[in-house]
Design a protein around this nucleic acid. Sequence first.
DNA 1: CTTCAGCGCGATAAT
DNA 2: CGCGCTGAAG
Length: 601
Amino acid sequence: MTGVRPDSTAAKRGPYIGTFHALGASILRRECGHLGRTPNFVIFDDHDSFDLIKKSVKAILPKHDGEPTLGATARRREKTKESPAYFSAKISELKNRVEEGASSTDAENALVQKIFASYESALERNNAFDFDDLIEKPVALFLSRPDILKKYQNRFDAILVDEYQDINPKQYQLVRMLAGAHHNLTVVGDDEQTIYTWRYADIKIFLGFERDWPGATVRFLEENYRSTGTIVNAASAMVKNNRLRTPKKLWTSAAAGTPIVLYEAWGENDEAAWIAARIADARGSNADIAVLYRTNAQSRAIEQALIRENIPYRIFGGLKFYERREVKDAVAALRYAANPRDELSRERLEKNLTKKKFAAYRAALAAAGSTKADGAETMAPSETLAIFLETFGYMTYLEEGFTNADEREENIAELARFAGEFERLPDFLERLSLLQATDDENASAGERAPAGSPLFDDTAEKSGSSGIAARPKASSVPPVHLSTIHMAKGLEFAAVFIAGAGEGLLPHERSIEKEASLEEERRLMYVAMTRAKKSLSISFYGLPSRFIGEIPEEFITFKTAADIESTSGATGTGGPSAGTSRRFQNDYDDEIDNAEPYISI
DNA sequence: CTTCAGCGCGATAAT
DNA sequence: CGCGCTGAAG
């Protein structure tokens, strides 16, 4: 979301550019006093808030322990109702939707409300907000305090929302409030690319724009300036199979270009090897290349293959850096130092690293803090981190307790390096909270650095260069981009590989039953395909994705692992039992290997 | 009261 | 692989 002031004030201040969550965090930083928090509040990530919800559930629900042998049935029951996961989803829904009629039964509702209330007070007690709060709490505040809202309405003379098809009701409520005075609102989006309904994105908001904003001007952009004719036509034909869509006729004046290459692999390692080999061939000619996949776990095989071929890559998202155990421990220590009310972090440290060591840490903090005017909260992050490592004997702990201690130590070192970029602990922690998966080394080169100015001049919101990344790279060729399809939204690459385009993965098995979620998977495939400018390759193993079958044959060149083997003079003339591709495989792929090759185009 | 080792289970997508 | 639970030892 972007807010602009075109007048003289704006010229000085510049536009604010940020995600909804970053904007919300900025607002809360200033206004948290109205919400029972102090400005050093922390932002709990999903994991933290889930833990907190679990505690609320445990405290409120009569525990149904009984016989230990009946654990299986109890578990099954937990899966549906009474489970922390259920309440977590409910609470998130309550925070993201705008109040309408209650849909569940009264009794169920009462229980949810009770746990919700308990969770909310726990958050406040911890001086914390969760992710959903970053939008929800500013909205709630603006509802009760129009005078505060006015201040923010005056901050922006114009607002632009990008990727508008993925806005959710609470975010929309925030936009309506901020644009409420001047109605100077521009939105950009494509309903065909809605891929976040599971985060409560609601396409009705997009479609209702003209109704909500009388006098709005709508411009259609049906000419595609990005991709070759082949890619545009193939993707359009595929996505036309969705029932829920607004008809459009996408076109391009670009040449047809090369056909889409479709590769049937034996298994995920063979697929990865094929992708890596093709990238190795193409490097130099294609400047930017991406490998896109549905689930983060798929990156592992591809990473290994790229390493084998000596191809530098950058991975986006995935097993998030800050979710690793050692990073979480260190961050918990920092959070606690900044915010002693953070019980969750305290408990983590006590449980993982013993209470005794935690007590030593707290004492060391107090000692260090007493030499400072403002206490420990304003220590430099590096300083606090050093105290943590020292008092917990953390490096020794890693070396003694883990086989991959080296890697974990490197992660700590990386965290320390990053911490060194910040002077104030709260700034560092906020950056970590919002950073999440979108770490990007390029930001330090200025490319993706936040271009906007702070929300208000008086807040010292330092935007240090971000970047937590640890991947080998060299050479002048840009590294290959690895990410989920979700994370590639809005990006483009000369060459794109879509990996794992088989039934079960894309569409994902958890989405094939309901039509709506299946159609979202199809839009996901559409997003993936249309990231490519010149060259698109799709690969799979096992059953090919139904979406592949929806691409007209004329756009596709088909290859199989067996083809590659016979043309490269290897033994085995195809057939699923050919053993030569074994060298790419490991034990996990057996079931997949034995599947019949099957193609329906 | 604290700590630790052992076991069984579940694991889409992410700000 | 990372968790929560268990039971037993420190």
